[in-house]
Each structure stands twice: as C-alpha cells, then as structure tokens.
Design a protein around this nucleic acid. Structure first.
Length: 540
RNA sequence: GGCGGCGUAGCUCAGCUGGUCAGAGCGGGGAUCUCAUAAGUCCCAGGUCGGAGGUUCGAGUCCUCCCGCCGCCA
C-alpha cells in the first residue's frame, strides 16, 4: 500500500541570513559533452559573486561553493564513442577543461565534484533504495518517437511530419537530426512525482521569493496548478550503459538527471551523520539556467521531500547569452571561447561584463565583442586611471606641500566644500547600497552603485583641479576623498572583479582584515599607498 | 492550441510596486583640460515608450484587444 508522503505539517526550514551554518551556493552541475562555453562561465561567475559577497558580508561564516561535472548519460556515451574513447577517459579530458575554466576565471569554489566519483555513485544507489522502499518507484512504460539512428526518444514537439511525395512515402523525422523516427514503447522505472504536487505547490505559495526572478516563480506555480505526471528515471542498459546501474536490476541504468541533481548533496558529503547543517545544507542560493528550471524546482525538491530534507532557500535562474543578437550555436559558428575571451580582455573585464550586462536576470543578454571591449576600457578608466590621477607625482607633491604647511588655510570655496561632502557621503553609503542590492539579488544594481561613485570621484577631482588650484588644502582634500572612494569601491568590487579589487586594496595599503563590508564604515589613514601601481595588465 | 516572458533614443539598457508627464552609458556633434592608464570634465542633438482602445485628475507603469519576438508544455 502506498504511503501518502505529503508532509504539510512539517515546517520548511528557513534560515535567516544570520544563521551560523555555512553559507552554501551552487552552480548547475555542468554536462561536459563538449568544451565549456560562455554560458558555463556566466553560471560560475554569478555563483562566485554571491560566494565572495557573503565572505565579505559575514567573514566569520564559512562559505561552501560546489561546482562540477555531470558525467553520465547518452550524449556523453556517444561523444566518447565518436572519439574512440571509453566514456570515463572522455570525461577526464572534458571535466578537466571545466575545472581549468573555473580556475582561470578566478572562481572561489570549495568543491569540484564529478558524478563519476565512487562516493557519489554509492550515494545515488542508496537514495534509489530509500525511495524504492517508500514505494515511490515503480516500473512503468514510456512511449514516444524513437530514433534508431539517434538512439533516443523524441516528443511530439521535437519531430515533424514529412508529407508524401511522388518518390518517397510520408514519414516522421526528428527536427534536430532529420533521422526517421517511429512510435515506440519501452519499460522504465518511474518516480511518483505526482505525489508531491501539493507539497511543492504549498512550498512555492508560502515562499513567494523562492525563485528569482519572479517570472520563473510564476512559471513553476503554473506548472504545479496542473496535474503533475510521474516521470521516467531510468533507461535500458542496452541503450544507456554509461551511468549508475539501478540497484538489483542491471538491465536498467539510472537516468542522468537523477544522479546529477543529487550531486548538490554529495558535493558536501551526504549522507551525513547529523542534519547536514554543519555541512551547509540547505543550499542558500542555487544558480541555474532557464533550461533546467523543472529539474531544480520540481524534480529535485520532490526527492528532497521524500528524503525528509529541507529545500534550497533560493534559486537564481539566469537566461542565456546570445551572440550579437543571435542564439549561440555551434552549427552557426558564433560561440565564444571563454578561455580566449579572458585571454584577450582579461579575466576581470570579462567578469565585469558578465555581471554588468548579465546581472539583471530578466532575459537573454548579448555577448558582443565590441561591447566587451568597451566595458574593458570603461573599467580601466574608472579604476585604473582614477588611481593614477590620485597618486600622480604632481598630486603627491601638492599633498606633501599641504602636509608640511598645516598652518595654511583650510577654508574652501563653498562649491568645492559641497562637492567634497557629496563625495564623502556617497562613499559612506556605498556599502549599504551594495548590500541592499545584493541581498535582493540585483547584481547589476550593486555594480552600478560602485560605478556611480567612481564617476562622481572623477568629476569632483576635475572640479577641484588640485594640479593647478593655488589652495594646497584642495590637494589634500581631493587626495583624501578620492582615495576613500577608491577604498570603499575596492572593498565592494571584490565579489565582481577580485583580481583588480585586491590589487587596488593592496596599492591603497588596506590591511587584509579591513576588507570586509563592515570595514567600509571605518576610516583609513592611507599611510602606505603604493604610488604608480598598475592595476591592469599591459594592453595592446 | 494552452501557459509564461519580452518590445523604451542609432546601439546596450534603467525606469517593478501609477505623479515635476522619460533617463544612463556607448556612439554622434561641439567645447574644455592636459593631474592621469589616448585618460578627465562640461554642453547639445536624438524618443509615435510596438499599435489601438479603456480605467484614472494623471499611465512607459494598471485593464482589454491586436502585431512582432522568445521560452515551456517527460
């Protein structure tokens, strides 16, 4: 007899941001059937921004950041076969590219998991047995349009009907590959997803901000307002051998997405001896792409409910990158190699672009070589040039002169006093503005606040014109207030462009322990400014 | 077909929760500076806010219809 597994009476775990458990963020686990692309980098950078942000927001709270590769499945099996490699060897190569991408993009992940790891393997089988013992798995039949050539099923939407012609009969083919398909049926293991519809609906009704942006919350609620059908979670071993075998049934292989989503648990050591809190569970932010929303908002939570585990706190769903307004596609030849982009523009300029342009999460965003180049220049001018203006030989000598003659007048014209006060006020509130935006997942707004402050600093410096103003005190005040703007900006820029931010803070002589969000409110004496530091690498 | 999202200056985008009835950056034109990483600052031009109705004292913002684009419907 089937147990009724809806747990409506059990409170969902909702930990406040001041919770002491480690803060946990994930990228989607990547499917390495080909080399990584800009979309993968976007997911990595997005997750990294939140990881780094939380490190400077709550320095005493550990941050756990899991990324990795999902290495089973038919596409990988076929890609390996095409290269005459065993799947494991193929995955070793491609997974290494993803790991290298993470490292070269300055991603501060704490764990790179691969679903081919033995511990993950064992845990997936263990979870399968658990679900099975609860009566949540049963054998059923799956039917659809099967392609012998492609060795897979297609849905109605994925096939098209070719009418009869004088030389050929009517037929149905797969849209993607044009291979002929025929309606077939096979036996698979099914998961009782339907049992969880009410609990899931309640969860998303109660937690209206579970998914960001709102449009995806609405989308998921719409799905859950209709009957939820059980889903197939296995494939015949004869067709899919590269995967985790179904326990006690070697003729079936666990479907790839099942073991993929379990990696968020195994990435932090599940099954735990305790509740998982000390390991970081539940996930605080789960970064996902819009193409995998169902897996992460419905299938995974259903499994978690079945395992009696709290659900992820929030999901951040990002859209895709287009290339000069066209969908990126290998067949179109308009994909961008992320390694090449980082090499050409610098890691931080690429991160800046991804965060600035991609940091609103509303819809697809455009990757354009011209736009990336412009953002690269903007960043260098905003941060690099401002630092050089403030620490120039002329400026430093004027400051020295002012310091050596403290009896000089400190009275400033009113317009300059107002300008300096405005800049100081803006510096003082930057931390709060960035925190407010980031806590609302508004990455682009946070970055815009920093840019605005740096622009204001450049303006005030031009207004004051200390390089020619006869009042020595103007030099001192300009120097001090612009360094302060750079300092607070440097602290706040760490999540977005960590390399430049660290070099800036080093050049300003900011101690390591004074680089937290809290430190923005404090003052700095700038006794150890390293004049002449170049914050950006050489340019062509 | 159903559901959801989008459409604002040449380009990329803010403007969600109705109120000095439209802004920013880039690009374009002009001026200025030369402290500075060929960088800075100032000014100007540029908009049927997809179209048509409606609600309202008032709508880019709410409602209806239409047009176009995108996504989902294991």
């Amino acid at each position: 007899m089937l147990r009724h597994f809806v747990r409506l009476t059990r409170p969902s775990y909702r930990y406040a941001s001041s919770s002491t458990k480690p803060w946990y963020v994930t990228t989607p686990i990547f499917y390495p059937n080909a080399a990584p692309h800009i979309g993968h980098l976007y997911s990595l950078v997005t997750a990294d921004i939140f990881a780094r942000y939380n490190r400077i927001k709550n320095p005493s709270r550990p941050v756990v950041f899991v990324t990795g590769t999902d290495e089973h499945g038919l596409k990988i099996q076929k890609a390996a076969k095409a290269q005459n490699l065993p799947p494991k060897d193929f995955c070793d190569v491609i997974s290494q590219q993803f790991r290298r991408l993470s490292e070269e993009a300055d991603i501060s992940h704490t764990r790179f998991i691969r679903t081919s790891e033995q511990a993950h393997y064992d845990t997936v089988q263990s979870i399968w047995r658990d679900l099975d013992s609860q009566g949540l798995i049963y054998k059923g039949s799956y039917s659809g349009w099967y392609s012998v050539t492609d060795e897979c099923f297609y849905t109605d939407a994925q096939v098209t009907h070719i009418p009869e012609t004088p030389s050929s009969p009517a037929r149905i083919i797969a849209k993607e590959t044009s291979s002929p398909v025929e309606f077939s049926e096979e036996t698979n293991y099914m998961f009782r997803l339907s049992s969880f519809r009410e609990a899931l609906l309640q969860h998303y009704t109660t937690h209206k901000d579970a998914i960001f942006p709102d449009a995806y919350q609405t989308y998921v609620l719409g799905i859950l307002e209709s009957p939820l059908e059980d889903i197939s979670i296995s494939r015949p071993h004869s067709r899919l051998s590269w995967g985790i075998p179904v326990p006690n049934d070697p003729e079936h292989t666990i479907y790839v997405w099942v073991d993929a989503v379990i990696s968020y648990l195994t990435g932090i050591g599940y099954p735990w001896k305790d509740t998982g809190l000390s390991h970081g569970w539940p996930v605080d932010i789960q970064v996902i792409g819009k193409d995998i929303v169902r897996f992460h908002t419905i299938y995974l939570p259903a499994i978690l409910l079945a395992l009696n585990l709290p659900l992820p706190q929030r999901l951040l769903t990002h859209a895709h990158w287009t290339s000069s307004q066209k969908k990126m596609s290998k067949s179109l030849g308009n994909t961008t190699d992320p390694f090449q982009a980082m090499s050409e523009f610098g890691v931080d300029s690429v991160r800046y672009y991804l965060a600035k342009v991609g940091g609103r999460f509303r819809d697809d965003v455009d990757w354009s070589h011209i736009q990336v180049s412009k953002h690269d220049k903007e960043l260098q001018a905003l941060v690099g040039n401002l630092f050089m203006r403030v620490t120039s030989a002329t400026m430093m000598s004027r400051v020295k002169e002012a310091l050596e003659n403290p009896e000089g007048s400190t009275e400033l014209p009113e317009d300059l006093r107002t300008a300096f006060r405005e800049l100081s006020d803006a510096s003082a509130v930057l931390g709060s503005k960035v925190q407010e935006s980031m806590d609302e997942m508004e990455v682009a707004d946070a970055l815009d606040s920093i840019v605005e402050l740096l622009r204001l600093a450049n303006k005030v410096l031009s207004d004051a014109a200390p390089w020619k103003n006869p009042l020595a005190h103007v030099s001192l005040e300009s120097h001090r207030s612009c360094l302060e703007a750079l300092r607070v900006s440097g602290i706040c820029l760490q999540p977005f462009i960590p390399g430049v931010a660290v070099r800036l803070l080093d050049a300003l002589g900011v101690p390591q322990e004074k680089r937290t969000l809290e430190s923005v409110k404090e003052t700095n004496t700038f006794e150890d400014v390293q004049v002449g530091t170049r914050l950006f690498g050489p340019r062509k």
